[in-house]
Amino acid sequence: MTENQKGFSSKNVSEVTVEAIRRGDITLDDVRIHPDTLAHQAQVAKANGNPQLAANFLRAAELTSLSDETVLGYYDALRPGRSTAQDLLNIANTLQAQGAKINAELFRQAADVYARRGLTAK
C-alpha cells in the first residue's frame, strides 16, 4: 500500500491512524478514493489488457464528487421503468454541466436504447 496516497479530502492517508479516528479527526472522505487515483488505476487496467475496466474507473472518477444519495438516486433512475427518456437526458445534462462527461454520455445512450426497447417509464 502506498503510504503517501491522498484520500478524497486530499488528506494524506498516512495521517489516518486509529488514534486520529479516536480523536474524531477523520471523516469518511479521508478514506475515500481520490479521482486522480482512479485515473491512475485506469491506466494500470488499460496496460493490463482491459480497456473496459479502465473506462469504468474513469466513469467512477467522475462520480467521486457526487454525494452518496445522488449516486444512489442516479442508479435508481437507470433501473427499468423508472425514468422517461427526457428524465435521462436531463440527468445527462446535469452531469455534463458538472464535468461528468463520460457518465453524461452513458445516460444519453440509455435514453436512446430505453426508448427503443420499451425500458422507459410508462
Binding site: R59, L63, Y74, P80
Partner: peptide, 17 residues
C-alpha cells in the same frame, strides 16, 4: 436492472474505492 444501470452501479462501487 438494465445493462446501463449495472454499468453505472459498477462505477458507483469503484467511485468509493
Amino acid at each position: 436492472d438494465t445493462p446501463w444501470s449495472k454499468a453505472f452501479l459498477t462505477s458507483a462501487y469503484a467511485s468509493r474505492g
